[in-house]
């Protein structure tokens, strides 16, 4: 599996710095362009999902417009979002307020 590359990001201002314990979500949105088999392949490639898991997420994106693909540290979430955007999937990084 290829894991998204780790990126070095500039240090945020102290006043807005996220807490280490914050949980961030990687959310993928449906789009009108990418074929289903492409989306499944990308999710398997980026996250290492098996076929069934990737397909479940793809169908959630297709039917409900979005799917939460992963949650955890901000740094890793950023790496995943970057990798999805490299493959032209619309992906968001969201702070999990309940996390």
């Amino acid at each position: 599996m290829i894991v998204a590359e780790t990126r070095t990001r500039p240090k945020p201002e102290a006043a807005t710095a996220p807490q280490l314990a914050d949980v961030w979500r990687v959310v993928a949105l449906n789009d009108p362009v990418n074929r289903m088999s492409y989306v499944v392949m990308v999710l398997r490639r980026v996250f290492g999902f098996d076929e069934d898991t990737a397909r479940t997420h793809m169908l959630a994106m297709h039917e409900r417009g979005r799917s939460v693909l992963w949650s955890g540290t901000r740094e890793q979430a950023e790496a995943y979002v970057f990798a999805l955007q490299q493959w032209h999937l619309t992906a968001l990084l969201q702070l999990d307020e309940a996390g």
Partner: peptide, 19 residues
């Protein structure tokens, strides 16, 4: 320009530009 615009919860312009 990117095929799809990235949306980051970030006002850090340097970070967004690098991304």
């Amino acid at each position: 320009e990117l095929a799809i615009k990235s949306a980051l919860p970030e006002n850090d312009r340097e970070f967004t530009d690098t991304w």
